Simulated assay, not measured.
Amino acid sequence: MSETALIDNCLTQMPPDSIVMADAGYGIFSVAHKVQQAGLSFLFRLSRQRFDRLRKTATLVDEGANWKTWSSQWQPSPSERKKHPDLPADAELSVQLHEFETDEGKPLYLVTSLDESVEMLSDLYARRTDVETDIRNIKVVLDTENIRARGVEMFHKELMTSMVACNLIVQFRRQAAELVKVPPRRMSFKRICTTFRQFLLSSMYTTAADWRERYRFALGIALQDKLPNRPGRKYPREAYRRRTKSTHFKKREKRSEAEEE
């Protein structure tokens, strides 16, 4: 099934008054309509083609030096109705369209149900990078992309155990960040994870007092895991390169009888 179809279960798990942010792959009417039906707000990035199509019938309401805002009534296209026949005949969303330039000078196209300023929405959408970084840490640093379980039940157990480990490291990082008076994300997740493993999980502790003493010691080591200051550092966002698949476990093809003779 498609990724957009998987959003249904996510919406039921979100707290009330949540804001759903998504990239252009989810920036379609059917997803926005599901979010609104769930009683939530949305902030989606749009592709240039879809943004231009919506802007044709939109009304310009405000503009600045490097941004513009339109008010629009978003309706599903004929092709989208064909793909989603369950959409009501009168399905329509009152939205705002925003176009502005990023720090790299590239245009960004957003659609939202929120009645907020462009500055607030651009800062909010920039937080999507935190989500991408968290997913990378879970997949790469904790190696959950290489789950070794073969059964469904064991897969769920291994994945959930990895998430417990992730939450422990996040809380450990939060405490270390509080001691050095910086935001938690200024602390390196990978280095914090290494400190947690080397100074806490490498030995067994038989009493709670020993564990607390060792925990305080590890927390002191973690104070050095702060990311370096990089003032004024700006560079275009780039996607991570797709890593090559290993063929180490490729099955050998059976030889024909003629080759064996």
Rank of each mutant, 00 (worst) to 15 (best):
L110P: 00
S2G: 02
E92K: 14
R255H: 11
S256N: 09
S41H: 13
R150M: 07
Y26R: 01
Y205I: 01
D210V: 01
K254L: 14
I192L: 13
A32Y: 03
F51H: 09
F100H: 12
D86R: 05
R50V: 01
S71F: 06
Y125G: 01
M154S: 08
T112G: 05
K56M: 12
Y240A: 06
R127M: 10
A5D: 15
G232H: 11
F42G: 02
P76R: 04
L54G: 02
R55C: 13
F172V: 03
L110K: 03
Y26Q: 00
P88Q: 10
H248M: 11
A38C: 06
E99Y: 04
R255D: 10
A165Q: 04
R127E: 12
S72L: 10
I192K: 02
I147R: 04
K250Q: 10
G64L: 11
A24P: 01
A32H: 04
V152H: 05
V95E: 03
L93M: 10
E158M: 05
R185C: 01
V20T: 01
I19K: 02
S162H: 02
V61A: 10
L124C: 04
A24W: 00
L97Y: 06
R214K: 15
A24K: 10
I192P: 04
A239L: 12
Q75L: 10
N9Q: 06
L179I: 12
A258W: 15
C193M: 05
E119V: 11
V180W: 05
N9I: 01
K82W: 03
M1A: 13
T144P: 03
E257Q: 09
M160C: 06
G25H: 07
E261Y: 14
P236W: 05
A239W: 07
N229R: 11
L179E: 11
T161S: 14
E99P: 00
R233D: 08
F249I: 00
T144I: 03
L43Y: 04
F217A: 12
S202T: 08
P228G: 04
A222Q: 03
T4Y: 07
D123L: 06
R136W: 07
N167C: 02
H84K: 12
T12S: 08
I138T: 05
A177L: 06
S94N: 13
D225G: 04
D130F: 06
L93D: 07
C193H: 15
W211Y: 13
T102S: 15
R48Q: 14
F196G: 01
F217G: 00
L179F: 03
R174I: 00
R241M: 02
K226L: 08
M1Y: 11
E104K: 05
E92I: 14
A5Q: 14
T194P: 00
M204I: 12
H33F: 14
E238M: 10
F217Y: 15
T161F: 06
